[in-house]
Design a binder for these strands. Structure first.
Lengths: 229, 229
DNA sequence: GGGTCCCGTGACAAGTCCGTGACGCGATTA
DNA sequence: TAATCGCGTCACGGACTTGTCACGGGACCC
């Protein structure tokens, strides 16, 4: 899980220490030395999380937090505040501004990474869809299970993800590239032919249950999931 | 879905922040600054959910939770506890009092709303509780004990919390991160693999009673509790 | 009918994920 | 104070996934 973290901090040494820790945790640090730079950086592509120093030249971190919350694009980006010990940290105002967590300096990088992970973890919503049924095949989203009528189907992780995508996007042709994007996640590179192999594996696990013809090949274009041949 | 939420919290600023967030999510906030006010407000018309601060003037939130559970009218109303980080929060006692979830301050409004929705969704199709039985395993909520048939099972605190969470959220896959959030609490940092170890310990204590296969591994996703393999 | 392109299929090696035993530490109890 | 217990972490090994490749059959176009 590669994440992009915006680090708004005027002290270069702290920025670098944080950047180093982030990189080790497979995250990318984007630097901003003051509020203005932060707003510019955010305008481009909103990061996954923002680390915000409490004291900044020009504008306080709190004020910046409010600004970020007001913007449509960044309203949902979690914010973690960095405060120095002894600094009057107005927790209530922070809460109002929608700050997700505080880390008090001096902090260990270990703790910082831990906090970041915790906040990221919480911010991802768990709206698992209910159950879907198409052509005698049913999947139970929350339970991560597939059924042919009443009998349960043993299915591997990637096969399940592929099946889940197909059933939530039935009756439509997807190219191998699109399937890679949606099922594998855009940030990994795998050969397109890999999709073929997984299609085959999926067909093979469905076949013993009389569920063939659901995954259809559209020659030259890709694959489609449909109950009607 | 218009819901009425009772907010029991002595700090006015937090009450207002919560009220603002609730309104944005199409819910109505009813305020109560202390336990007495809460009991009065509840006597009129029970709300759909109660947000309860852990520390209250006069009576602790935990005590109030017990009182609310004892009342006929409010026994079934879900309760979410608000606790400050660092406050010693006794999650076991919370379970005993029938608390449905915890949210640790500082929290973002986004997270709070998400938790509220999750609890509401769950309480829709949940009947009166007390004790739950799944697959020959029974837990007695108020006493926090576990039984296999009639024989009591010796079980540690963390194992019990894990088991309790599983039994109140059966037939659904949870990632290690989600389990950490719900069973360990939001703002603590432990390695995700720690979950594995506790899963194993739980399995090991259940096994001698023939209760194996209840805690299931979903490779690549997490764990699931279910009576059917 | 021939050629070309596209897809199905089986095998395989690397990689990932999970179960498991052990260890140290702090808290609680005797 | 000593002893026990529960908990979090680590390292190791095994089992399962998974991405890739090579081969061959079939479809489409001419």
């Amino acid at each position: 899980m590669h994440k992009r973290i915006l680090v708004v901090e005027d002290e270069a040494s702290i920025r670098e220490m944080v950047a180093f820790a982030l990189r080790k945790a497979d995250m990318e640090a984007i630097h901003a030395a003051d509020a203005r730079a932060a707003l510019v950086a955010v305008a481009d592509t909103p990061p996954d999380l923002i680390l915000l120093d409490w004291m900044l030249p020009g504008m306080t971190g709190l004020e910046l937090a409010r600004r970020l919350r007001a913007e449509e694009r960044t309203a949902d980006v979690p914010i973690i505040m960095l405060t120095a010990r002894g600094e009057e940290m107005d927790r209530v105002n922070g809460l109002e501004a929608g700050v997700d967590d505080y880390v008090v300096k001096p902090f260990s990088t270990r703790e910082l990474i831990a906090r970041i992970k915790a906040v990221l973890r919480r911010s991802q919503d768990d709206d698992a869809t209910g159950s879907i049924e198409i052509g005698g095949l049913r999947i139970d989203g929350p339970a991560h299970r597939a059924y042919a009528g009443d009998v349960q189907i043993e299915i591997g992780p990637t096969e399940y993800r592929l099946l889940h995508f197909f059933m939530t996007h039935a009756e439509r042709v997807y190219s191998r590239a699109q399937l890679l994007d949606h099922v594998w996640g855009g940030s990994v590179y795998v050969e397109e032919r890999t999709v073929d192999v997984h299609i085959r594996r999926l067909r093979k696990t469905l076949e013993p249950f009389g569920l063939d013809g659901l995954v259809q090949t559209v020659r030259g274009s890709g694959y489609r999931f449909s109950a009607t041949p």
